[in-house]
């Protein structure tokens, strides 16, 4: 790692100030992706601003509107344990990485990084979540802007994520056998006004909504409703773990399984 200063502010406002002081400042969530990146000397921040000591960014609660609200620095383990009001979301959190990673990794860190194979982007996009930052609120549909790219500005941090709770939902993940990230995974959520289907791990553009499946499932929420649909392998990630065509195929299989398992 290159040398840097590590700051641990206790308030959002202090974190924002530390991040805006210098262009070479970078926020640090749980560090489960950033620290390995730093070890490879692939990033060279002068200052890391840790967000994990900020009490107002911690925890899970239920809003008056019935949304599950999760502080940006809440760990996956906490979400798994405390987001029982949204079982599919809690289950997704319980399947990220491994127990030790879940004890450090945070929802804000995951969403800010927007790894194309990460789990949380699928939940956020599949739930039509609202991403709350220190500066504004961003709809999930506007937030994800391609692999490792989001609507966040420099120095902007995710303070909270609000998930509307669907009638039924399920996250079906097919592990990449080495990293245990999603080789492909699908989040399906059935709301009163329609079904949302978000696919992660597959596209070169990062997480995306499969609109044809959403339409079909909104009309008939059953795996059979998908039978005539298919995704193209074009634009899908192709690597040593699987071709684009394989990922496209998996996305359909997993969507069907998610529908069948949705509770």
């Amino acid at each position: 790692m290159y040398a840097f200063d590590l700051e641990r502010p206790g308030r959002i406002a202090d974190a924002v100030k530390l991040l805006s002081d210098s262009e070479e400042s970078q926020p640090l969530g749980g560090g489960q992706t950033l620290i390995p990146t730093l070890k490879q000397r692939l990033a060279m921040p002068e200052r890391l601003v840790s967000l994990t000591a900020i009490p107002e960014m911690q925890g899970v609660c239920l809003s008056d509107a019935g949304e599950v609200c999760i502080g940006g620095a809440t760990t996956h383990a906490t979400v798994a344990a405390e987001a029982g009001a949204y079982p599919a979301l809690a289950a997704l959190a319980a399947g990220i990485g491994d127990p030790a990673v879940r004890n450090r990794g945070t929802i804000g860190g995951s969403l800010a990084n927007n790894d194309p194979s990460a789990c949380y982007p699928a939940a956020a996009l599949g739930s039509g979540a609202r991403i709350i930052t220190n500066a504004r609120e961003i709809a999930a549909d506007d937030y994800f802007q391609g692999m490792f790219t989001t609507a966040l500005d420099e120095g902007e941090i995710i303070t909270e994520v609000r998930f509307p709770v669907p009638e039924k939902a399920h996250y079906e993940k097919f592990d990449q056998p080495a990293s245990r990230f999603a080789l492909t995974a699908v989040f399906v959520a059935k709301y009163a006004d329609g079904v949302r289907v978000a696919v992660t791990g597959a596209s070169e553009e990062g997480v995306f909504r499969w609109s044809e499946a959403e339409a079909a499932l909104s009309a008939d929420f059953s795996a059979e409703a998908l039978s005539g649909l298919s995704l193209s392998g074009d634009g899908m990630i192709s690597d040593l773990h699987g071709s684009g065509a394989y990922r496209a195929h998996l996305a359909k299989v997993l969507t069907g399984r998610a529908v069948a398992a949705a509770r």
Binding site: L6, R8, G31, Q32, I35, P36, K39, Q40, S50, T52, A77, D98, P99, A100, V101, N103, R104, S179
Partner: peptide
Amino acid sequence: CDTSQCGACVVHVDGKAVKACTMFAAEAE
């Protein structure tokens, strides 16, 4: 390892298992 995968470094911090190679010492203040 250097990718937070192998778990040989697991310790407990405030009673929770974490990978000591993927956490800064200053964060354990």
